[in-house]
Design a protein around this nucleic acid. Structure first.
Lengths: 226, 226
DNA sequence: GTAAAGTTTACCAAATTGTTAAGTGCAATT
DNA sequence: AATTGCACTTAACAATTTGGTAAACTTTAC
């Protein structure tokens, strides 16, 4: 199966377990990242924006429950599933874990077959149900659901076309989008507008967001810069 | 199946094994290259840019783990999958291999069926996931998507025609491109420009990239040198 | 040494983008 | 129903960048 698009962050304080899980998930084609405690998980997670976090409940520095609670309030983890790893005896934790916002749990000892099957199922669910609603690039957060953009927490209002255009550019930071492509994606095939219209919208986006975020590549198009 | 596009570098210190694998992979249509230790693998790999490296863990001069670690930091191997060959008992190595950045492993004794199936699966994955947007030649990285060129990590801006010309030359380092061919590819059929124009653009590219990268072959044309 | 091929410079024309302003139409409000 | 405000589009002009050519100069091959 081709799981290479999915990033999974595995969090456990025991290296043996980390390695064992990493080995099994890599074999399935997932991109695997590791962390040793809750704090590390949050730090790494903010950077890589994993699709799923496998989180051990019992850990030093910051336990899984606490980490989970924090992540549930963090827009960086808006699109991340959280799955707890629990020892079989930790009945209580299973409950507390769900209260903290976890999406599933897996009991130790971990059986590779079970692990992989469960994660596949969860991620397939994600693919269908959640078409990424929040986009975070650098200090900019774009919330497609609320139609809002935040820069360093400060709310900025955008008109619809401006928003769609910005969202498109920000969906692949660094990539240059040609005017033709932009017209097709933001305006659609049947609408016909002069491509210079894009320039004017770019102007407005720059006005609100700051010049440094939108780059021009002469003769090609525009791009979002992180 | 037509695997002729795929280059596989097999690395093992035992000639028997090399030949056995070579025989089985050639039968599948892969381009097979051989190396006897980690150092040799890196040297050859830099030249041929294999799609996949089959790497024995235990070797003299430089073992597989060490070689793997080095390659993972080398831009020449950015598009290369690494698969370890391990003796069945080397459980530890399998794990260490993943930490070094390997993508899969295969246990000895090697069964031809397993070998071929596994490699096919991995390479199919590669084909899907990596639409080679980045071109890496020596210390130069050309990113067609972002329309950017990097030399040793330092960003260099190119005008459109310069970029297209450079990209064409760099797409086949060492190959000499005639002016006629360049005109056709970069400018197109219907545009008519004097072929001396190319010279001027070459000048500009050399200015930004350094003289050593673009070579002249008198009476024939230009080429990119790594 | 000479001719052919390649390099470099400088300048101009063309193409592309930035910016402003004004017109249009829709929707909410009065 | 008229008014206002907003989003969107277009046009026009300014600013900038890029591309192309010619001509002078240098190197290379014979």
């Amino acid at each position: 199966m081709d799981n290479s698009a999915f990033k999974i962050l595995v969090v456990d304080d025991e290296n043996d377990i980390l390695e064992f899980i990493q080995y099994n998930l890599k074999k399935e084609g997932y991109d695997v990242y590791l962390a040793h405690n809750g704090q590390e998980a949050i730090d790494i997670g903010r950077k890589i924006k994993p699709d799923l976090i496998l989180l051990d409940v019992m850990m030093p520095v910051m336990d899984g429950i606490e980490a989970c609670k924090q992540m549930k309030f963090d827009p960086d983890f808006a699109n991340t599933f959280i799955v707890f790893l629990t020892a079989r005896s930790e009945e209580y934790s299973e409950i507390a874990g769900f209260q903290a916002g976890a999406d599933d749990y897996i009991s130790k000892p971990i059986k590779p077959r079970v692990l992989v099957t469960r994660l596949n199922a969860i991620l397939r669910r994600k693919e269908k149900v959640q078409p990424d609603t929040k986009l975070t690039v650098g200090d900019i957060v774009i919330d497609r659901e609320a139609f809002l953009v935040f820069r360093k927490g400060e709310k900025i209002q955008f008109a619809r076309k401006e928003f769609e255009l910005l969202f498109l550019l920000a969906s692949k930071p660094g990539k240059v989008f040609t005017r033709d492509y932009i017209l097709e994606k933001v305006w659609g095939d049947e609408v016909l507008v002069v491509d210079r219209t894009i320039d004017v919208h770019i102007r407005k986006i720059r006005e609100k967001l700051g010049d440094e975020h939108i780059g021009t590549v002469k003769g090609v198009g525009y791009k979002f810069e992180a």
